Computed example of a mutant assay.
Amino acid sequence: MSPVVIPARIKKILIIKPSAFGDIIHSLPFLNAVKSTFPNARIDWVVAHGLHTFLEGHPMIDKLWVIKKDQWKKIGYLKSTLNEIFGLVKGLGKEKYDIAFDLSGILRSGLITLASKAYMKIGFEESDEGSPFFYTHKIKGGMDNHAIDRYLKLAGFIGCDTSSVNYPFAPFDNHSDICNILPPNYVVISPSAGKPANQWPAEKYGELASMLPLPSVVISSGADAAIAERVVKFSQGKALSIAGKTTLKGLMPIIKGARFFITNDTGPMHLAAALEVPVVAVFGPANPVRTGPYGSIHRVIQKKLPCSPCYAWQPCSHWRCMNELTVREVFDVVKEMTET
């Protein structure tokens, strides 16, 4: 589809991408392309509570519409949810956006797009849950493209230059207090994942850490601290857990200072790729074409099985994609990368 002719006087743009962490990082090149084309436009962003801290203070974003979306399906929060939704609908409607972009493509984000009352409501034609019904312009993103390239197609549709991929981050501290306890030369391991099926066993990460020539720093959320501690347990004293001890922005100097980043398919993996830290990514049922680390300096390790990728949420009965992936296979890839 050819780009549409968009007047340069566009004043207000809304980006709808509440979550997840990795998806928000994928959206930053889109934000950069749009702001570069429309430098005088106001850009607002609908983001989930908790993840909003990563975007706070961003010089390209004028306002964050923060929603507690995780509570919206919980009956105990019905009253507060209704108040939040009514306030969001009323507030968005008053803004008179020229363009609203739905990068999520589900029913909730489609309804938020509708609520924006934007003159142009743009999303993907293959989006889920009926969300394209709410768009004025439907763009073919393609399901066999990386998420970053798909998002940039929306920017290209309104005439933005998408020839380069740049990640504009909100300001962050280049040296947090926790950096003081880290070894001078280290690898970061991220052993948790949003989907249990995407999680290579923690004891294997621990065994891998025991074989590496460098010490490992293990990161995760506080909720997944037990996974990080299991990695430490099997590392023979060569891993340090800082699980739950950093903010999202606080992860940035830690990852930026690493020699390598070894991980499952998870949000911090995309942060490492954006920071140009070499990534070794362990993939099972997920599709690295869509959600792998973006860039040529990274390596994806995935068993070639007829059932993969299956996009499963929970491990299946055999879970061969993860169970049959050995520590030695991953170690060999890391070793190869260190020698090149």
Rank of each mutant, 00 (worst) to 15 (best):
L51G: 06
G295C: 05
I85Y: 11
A258I: 13
D144F: 03
N32C: 06
G76T: 10
A258V: 13
M322N: 08
D62Q: 09
A223D: 14
F169Q: 01
F134Y: 11
T136W: 13
L78K: 13
S308C: 15
P215A: 13
L305Q: 06
E229W: 08
N40F: 08
L214C: 02
L51I: 08
L14E: 03
I24Y: 03
W45H: 05
G206H: 03
T246E: 11
K90Q: 04
E229G: 04
P39F: 01
P201N: 10
Y97K: 05
I178C: 08
F283V: 03
G250P: 11
A115I: 07
S116P: 05
A228I: 04
K117Q: 06
A274S: 10
A286S: 14
P285Y: 00
G267Q: 02
K17T: 00
P315R: 07
Y97C: 06
G50Y: 09
G156M: 14
R299D: 00
S127C: 03
D173M: 11
G295P: 08
P306D: 03
T53Y: 05
D332W: 14
V334N: 06
A286R: 00
N287K: 14
S192Q: 08
F169V: 03
A209T: 01
P132Q: 04
L240N: 12
N145G: 02
V232Y: 07
R328V: 15
A202Y: 07
A48M: 06
V333A: 01
I122M: 05
G142R: 02
